[in-house]
């Protein structure tokens, strides 16, 4: 099979399927028509824009433009990682900085490891490899970082008395918060572990599907997918660990006290808002 480019009419027919969603919404009076329309339009505009921007970046092939795009991706992803949290750790800047630094570090390490050692693209900063991989790495680290921060804030708030009791008995801050940190890390690492276990049986990963549709050999596509999942798993673990330990450090001081006033509820930020 060879690559079959999609025309405008193909996309219009695909869009026709959204009428099913609209029909369900109208039939059951879900009131989702407006949201659905906005979401569909956003999807088309955002993906179209990304397509054109990436095309432009690939044609330019300039390291500066690549770095600028990578920077914007990291900024937006770190904002997304902390924006929908129900709790805040420290002030807004500290909370965002925590997510941003964890994602910056793990995203860069994972992506550079991938493009230099694994793919070996020439030159190493070639946007065609770097930007999509950074995107996939950030997308998964984002989930992990936001889960680890939210779970840690929730359990620390719930276990506050027990944490203080351990500190009073002479525990260090790491000892006192170990169980909270462990449960937060477990929660944050589960999605990537699950998606590795389900890959190929329950779901055919999006990247592999795309490669196969674009005419690549399925075995080659599978090899790429295995590499990507490993990179994603590793960088998620790194980002989650950095964010978790950073949060423990923000929530305690060097005299091993729990600074519970740094745990702020942030209501009104709807965790279930339509994206």
């Amino acid at each position: 099979m060879t690559y079959h480019p999609l025309g405008v009419f193909d996309l219009l027919f695909a869009g026709l399927l959204l009428c099913l969603n609209a029909g369900v919404s109208i039939g059951f009076r879900l009131g989702l028509e407006r949201t659905l329309l906005i979401a569909a339009l956003r999807m088309v505009v955002q993906l179209g824009a990304v397509g054109f921007i990436l095309k432009f970046a690939f044609e330019q092939g300039s390291p500066g433009l690549t770095a600028a795009l990578a920077g914007i991706m990291i900024l937006v992803a770190s904002w997304d990682a902390v924006a929908r949290s129900n709790h805040r750790i420290g002030d807004a800047w500290q909370h965002w900085g925590l997510g941003a630094s964890a994602m910056l570090f793990s995203g860069l390490v994972g992506t550079l490891y991938c493009v230099t050692l694994l793919i070996g693209s020439e030159p190493w900063w070639s946007p065609r490899a770097l930007l999509p991989i950074l995107g996939m790495v950030l997308g998964n680290t984002l989930t992990g970082v936001s889960l680890v921060l939210d779970t840690l804030a929730t359990t620390t708030r719930r276990e506050r008395a027990a944490i203080e009791a351990r500190l009073a008995l002479g525990a260090t801050r790491i000892e006192a918060l170990r169980e909270c940190l462990a449960s937060a890390l477990r929660t944050a690492l589960l999605p990537i572990v699950n998606s590795m276990a389900a890959a190929g049986i329950v779901s055919l990963p999006g990247m592999m599907t795309g490669q196969i549709l674009a005419g690549a050999d399925p075995v080659e596509a599978a090899k790429y997918q295995i590499m990507i999942l490993c990179v994603i798993a590793g960088t998620t673990a790194l980002g989650v660990l950095l964010a978790g330990i950073g949060a423990v450090w923000l929530l305690t001081d060097n005299r091993h006290r729990l600074l519970s006033e740094r745990l702020v509820s942030a209501p009104g930020q709807d965790a279930t808002s339509v994206r």
Partner: peptide
């Protein structure tokens, strides 16, 4: 002294002990 060492010697016993 490191705070944990201090609290091994100076022990605060809460009116409502918490358990983990």
């Amino acid at each position: 002294l490191p705070a944990p060492v201090w609290r091994q010697r100076v022990r605060y016993v809460s009116a409502e002990p918490a358990w983990w």
